[in-house]
Simulated assay, not measured.
Amino acid sequence: MQKKLILDTDLLDITISRLCQELIENHGDFSETVIIGMQTRGIFVADIIHKKLEKLTKKNIPFGYLDATFHRDDFRRREIPVKANETKIDFPIEGKRVVLVDDVLFTGRTIRAAMDTMIGFGRPQKVELLVLIDRKYTRELPIAADYVGKSVNTLTSQRVLVELEAQGHKQNKIWLINKD
């Protein structure tokens, strides 16, 4: 197995800062915006983005997380039953601009499931997608991110590994792994 470093700690911090600046440019005072992290790994990225945005804007921005397990189209196809994670959205999303955050955009199926899940909480005015890594050439559904940390050319056989301090790792790093 070969590992290639995509983003080290410093570059990841710069990337997240840039993403936050893009959000500030497009959302202004965030009065009509909510941030929702995707379970399981997207919540860590969303939390980092949320804290940095609140610090930069000095505003309280509604933040929650969403589990789309039961809306996935492969839910019943797995040999081992998937365990659901917690969904925590304790604010209205009706008429709001939702920034959905995940770590890696791969096939697009998880995002499709997330949008189906969100409808249970109201009809947002707009949904935007923010991802740290956009895996190009692997999309199975016509899903595209509005905010991308880094686009990476990948093969289906490869894997992107996001290691964050919030997950218990020593440093924030993102790797591309070849499963040779």
Rank of each mutant, 00 (worst) to 15 (best):
Y137H: 11
V152D: 04
L130N: 07
I119A: 11
T110M: 04
L105E: 01
F106K: 02
N153H: 08
L132A: 01
L155E: 10
R123V: 13
L155N: 10
S151A: 14
N153D: 14
G120K: 13
L129V: 14
S151Y: 03
R109K: 14
A114Y: 02
D103K: 00
L105V: 07
K136H: 07
P142F: 10
D103H: 02
D134S: 09
A145H: 06
D146G: 09
D102N: 03
I111C: 02
T117W: 05
G120L: 10
N153Y: 05
I133T: 06
L130T: 09
P142M: 13
R123E: 14
L129H: 09
L141E: 12
D116H: 14
L130W: 03
A113H: 03
D146V: 14
I119Q: 12
D134H: 07
I111A: 01
M115I: 15
L105S: 00
V148N: 03
R123N: 13
E140G: 11
T138I: 05
L129M: 10
V127E: 11
A144L: 10
V104F: 01
V152F: 04
D103E: 04
G120F: 07
Y137R: 11
L130P: 05
R139D: 04
L130D: 06
R112C: 03
P124V: 12
G122N: 07
G120E: 15
L141P: 02
K126M: 15
T138W: 00
G122A: 10
Y147K: 13
A113C: 12
I111K: 00
V104T: 03
G108E: 08
G120T: 12
D134M: 07
V152T: 04
V131T: 05
F106M: 02
T156M: 07
L105W: 00
F106S: 04
L155F: 01
I119S: 11
P124M: 07
A114Q: 00
K150G: 05
L132F: 01
D146F: 10
I143T: 07
D146S: 14
L105A: 00
A144R: 14
L141V: 15
P124T: 13
R109H: 12
A114L: 06
G122M: 04
M118W: 04
D103A: 02
I119C: 06
T138Q: 08
D134Q: 06
L130R: 08
Y147D: 12
K126C: 13
I111S: 01
R109Y: 06
A114I: 05
D134G: 06
V131Q: 00
D116Q: 14
D134T: 07
T156K: 13
V101M: 03
S151F: 04
R139Q: 08
L155R: 11
A113F: 06
D116E: 13
